[in-house]
Amino acid sequence: MDQNLRLLFARALADEPEPPPGDLAGQAMATGTSMRRRRHRLVAAGVAGVATIAALGAVNVAPPAERSASPATVPAGFAMLVNPACDSPVQDTSTDVSIFLTADLTDQQRSAVESMLHADPAVHTMAYESREQALIRYRKIFEDAPQLVAAVKASQLPESFGIKLTGRSQYANLAARVERMPGVDEVIGSECPPGTNAWAAR
């Protein structure tokens, strides 16, 4: 038999139906535009978030800890530290989780969170990221926006743990367990394309 693979593929495609009527390009442009808008909104909210993080930092230097007025933009501010190739923040479809730690974290709190994550059944792999590593990644994510890079110092960025979940259904479980731990500031779920993760630069 002298069949080669390409010929067989061609034959398998022989029953191709007519493409459905409709403007493929037009629809793609409409969907694509709203995707882009959503992403821009997230980044814009994130920029506002970094400003608030910086402001919180400044406030914290002067009178000790008056952080009750944590504004709603802060989660989005953390979300901008997540790999832009991932969809964030998402819940049920999360493949990755970023756990951002508070600015006034103690060593005990950090190791408590770490050992809890180590033992957690929802955690497939985990990676710790220091403030300095966060800054390196932040610079990469915003390399096209020098004014954003110049405005931020390592001390203004949070330490974090990056988690690969064992399955997509695990986000809610893990978030519920981790969120209330002392030293944990924000938990963000991301849906990342295969081969990447939430704490890669892009």
């Binding site: 493929l24 390009a25 629809q27 793609a28 442009m29 969907t31 694509g32 535009t33 995707m35 882009r36 992403r39």
Partner: peptide, 9 residues
């Protein structure tokens, strides 16, 4: 369709 939408974005 998804591919083209993502590319247009």
């Amino acid at each position: 369709q998804i591919t083209f939408a993502k590319m247009y974005a």
